[in-house]
Design a protein around this nucleic acid. Structure first.
Lengths: 231, 231
DNA sequence: GTCTGTATACTTACATACAAGTAGCCGGAA
DNA sequence: TTCCGGCTACTTGTATGTAAGTATACAGAC
């Protein structure tokens, strides 16, 4: 084989790398919904054997990014409205529960750190840097879960909200989207600063439903990304 | 091409079977915390090759049932208080959110079906049948999530609450445990019947914390199951 | 032309062989 | 006795071969 274990320079095992690459490719839309992905083709393109490919595909299957039909093929799932709503429900439940705890646990230093995050987000709004904003946005929500003492909740939400991430990727280019996001982050942050769990929850819930409310529009713009059927 | 293909209904793939067997063995305590499990040994004992074993182990690793150390071994994780609290947090957030929705969505037929479940549980209390009670208990909670329209939430909770399941298994033999469980199920059921989301949430939250409150006792009874360190 | 049976070229699921790294035994030296 | 170095027997991670099943193209019958 060409590439030895020297490739393992701390980036994780090959299977883990393949998983990350495929996940990112699906969310970014490089692998389009409905597309068939071949383990053999991937193994040559990524220069690894089929074993790590299979490991990655298995994880993606658990997260509903792909559907694997035995002896037939593996397909990138189309975004289904039901799956998006499921993901939204899970994320909302977990993060709202977390923010309530965070509101009573966060100290001044925690608030300051969160504030720094939001300020960095503001800078990106001016540059319309959607890529890096998405990263900082995830960091913001991850930080809230971390503040609650249950960073595990963020991991779970992350694994469950696959379809939601794909939708977000499509919705970012909409006008003034980033600006509104930052404003809402500020509202949540203020509630946390005042140690007001109820207000923090309400604010975060409203914020999280932003993405969901954009789904119909996104669906019209990218109908080929979605499953046919019920509206 | 959008053909939904029939899954292999019967027993599932070998990897899936191995996963279920190992998961059950860990929860039941047949595989004790800290114990090293060898992929090779498992492959001969279960009469399959290492490939499906590895697939199962990968899933168990995601659920924190095992810890895999490359080139060293795979070990059954010890129950950590932090992991149990994490699982509790996730389950509570998801199920409480679900029960609120269920309270306003459930119709008479749904309530009747849930009532039937609880009645079957009552019968098992008399026989002290812990095994089957655990199954019916899961069915009860799964049904609530199903009623909310987000059965997916139960799947997520199920995957996240691994350590909690192990604790429950240890706590079931405590006196009058089953009886209290059924009583609390009734309280939740009544709240659902009255379509009272707030009361349903409070009742369910209290119910879910029963297991957690038993952790210290369980830890004293089975210290070898738990990680050492912080109390 | 239309339909049908078959060969073929794919696919995933599983089995097996190899590579690389770690713990521990064990003999020998200080 | 104590410490150190190498050898051995494991481990997981990866590569590759084998088996079984499905869609499809195509030749032939009607």
């Amino acid at each position: 084989m060409r590439i030895r274990h020297s490739q393992r320079v701390g980036a994780g095992s090959a299977g883990r790398q393949v998983y990350k690459a495929l996940r990112e490719a699906i969310i970014a839309g490089d692998l389009t919904p409905g597309q068939r992905i071949s383990e053999n083709e991937l193994s040559v393109r990524l220069a690894v054997s089929r074993t790590p490919i299979r490991e990655a595909v298995a994880r993606l299957r658990d997260e509903r990014f792909v559907q694997v039909v035995p002896q037939l093929g593996t397909f990138v799932t189309r975004i289904s409205t039901a799956a998006v709503e499921d993901a939204q429900f899970v994320r909302e439940a977990l993060e709202c529960a977390a923010v309530r705890v965070a509101a009573v646990r966060a100290d001044a230093a925690d608030i300051a750190a969160l504030g720094g995050l939001v300020r960095r987000q503001e800078e990106l709004v001016a540059h319309a840097d959607f890529e890096r904003f998405a990263v900082l946005d995830d960091e913001f929500h991850a930080a809230i879960c971390e503040l609650s003492g249950h960073g595990f909740a963020w991991e779970v939400a992350q694994r469950a909200k696959g379809h939601l991430s794909r939708v977000r990727r499509l919705s970012l280019p909409q006008p003034n989207y980033l600006g509104e996001m930052v404003v809402e982050h500020h509202v949540v942050l203020d509630a946390l600063r005042r140690a007001a769990p109820d207000e923090a929850e309400v604010a975060l819930r409203h914020h999280l439903r932003m993405v969901l409310s954009a789904v119909p529009t996104i669906r019209e713009q990218h109908p080929e990304y979605f499953e046919e059927g019920e509206f």
